[in-house]
């Protein structure tokens, strides 16, 4: 084929596109199709249009989230015995003769013990002289 003017191109395009369209133009689809049932409509939800509002599911999700947070907070409150911090064991000297933790400033080695003897010998430059009887 040889087309050599804009009019020829116009004509060619017009003929081409007109030939692409059905003639006669088909009827609307519902004129031929059985109408879909409501159930089928809901099961076959189209995915190309905007999703419908789902208030029920949103409300349920919010309620579930709120209940979960409340449960979590309640559990934490219960486990912590309220908001007041419990006294730590050993933070204060025991008054009933039980075990207690000593402050670092109060800790010292017992006087006259083996370590004290070793320390004195080392200061005097001699070999440690330990009386074996101390260990008996």
């Amino acid at each position: 084929m040889t087309t050599n003017s804009p009019d020829d191109l116009d004509r060619l395009l017009s003929d081409f596109f007109k030939a692409q369209m059905k003639n006669p133009w088909p009827n609307a689809p519902l004129a031929q199709a059985a109408e879909p049932s409501e159930l089928a409509t809901r099961l076959d939800a189209p995915r190309n249009e905007p999703a419908p509002a789902r208030r029920d599911q949103t409300a349920r999700a919010k309620f579930t989230l709120a209940a979960s947070v409340a449960f979590l907070l309640g559990t934490a409150f219960y486990m912590s015995d309220g908001y007041a911090p419990a006294p730590r064991p050993g933070a204060q000297p025991a008054t009933n003769g039980g075990p207690s933790l000593l402050n670092a400033s109060d800790a010292k080695a017992p006087q006259g013990g083996v370590l004290d003897t070793l320390s004195k010998d080392k200061v005097n430059g001699g070999a440690p002289k330990v009386d074996p009887s101390q260990f008996e």
Binding site: P29, L30, E35, P36, T41, P46, E49, P52
Partner: peptide, 23 residues
């Protein structure tokens, strides 16, 4: 052309379904 017509009919069918669903 045929695909375009399929798409056209499908689009109108979906419009009808939307109407039927009360949208």
């Amino acid at each position: 052309s045929d695909l375009a017509l399929d798409v056209t009919q499908e689009a109108f069918m979906r419009l009808w379904k939307q109407w039927e669903a009360g949208e």
